[in-house]
């Protein structure tokens, strides 16, 4: 089995598109994802937005975000299909798992660092006592860190 990764797809259809074709397109995309044994993790409709620049005759577009996981072949296929479908005026697929992982790791490291520094100063690792009491402590902390 090939490795599955998480990707983010944004596609734009013309602003005047009716509900039905949009729903059809969405199910089409989801069918492709399913065919490659991928999973749809999130679907988000941003609704009608003004485009920052005109794309052909279009000034407005409906943005749809779809987060999915699957193998690389799936991405290729979706990309190809979206290029063919005339209804889609623009689309973008971006890999996201790596970025999220890096961001999470950084956050974890920062948290650990804070905890370590706090312990070194003889404070409990979590800054909970800020709400619970210990007047004067927050100010002192800000200057020192």
């Amino acid at each position: 089995m090939s490795t599955h990764r998480q990707y983010e797809l944004v596609y734009i259809v013309p602003g005047e598109t009716a509900e039905q074709p949009l729903a059809d397109l969405q199910s089409q995309v989801e069918a492709i994802v399913a065919r490659f044994s991928g999973t749809v993790d999130k679907v988000e409709n941003w609704g009608r937005r003004k485009l920052a620049y005109e794309i052909g005759p279009h000034k407005e577009g409906v943005y749809v975000l779809l987060v999915f996981s699957g193998p690389g072949d799936l991405v290729k296929e979706i990309d190809r299909r979206l290029k063919v479908i005339d209804l889609v005026i623009r689309h973008l697929i971006v890999r996201v798992d790596e970025e999220i992982e890096v961001a999470d790791r950084r956050q974890a490291r920062r948290k650990a660092d804070t905890a370590r520094r706090r312990v070194a100063r003889g404070l409990p690792p979590e800054p909970e006592e800020r709400a619970a009491g210990a007047p004067g402590e927050p100010n002192h902390e800000q200057t020192e860190v």
Binding site: R49, A52, I55, G61, R90, L92
Partner: peptide, 11 residues
């Protein structure tokens, strides 16, 4: 650059 591609911000 990505945002430009999907017309969220202008080139």
């Amino acid at each position: 650059k990505r945002a430009r591609q999907i017309a969220l911000i202008p080139y």
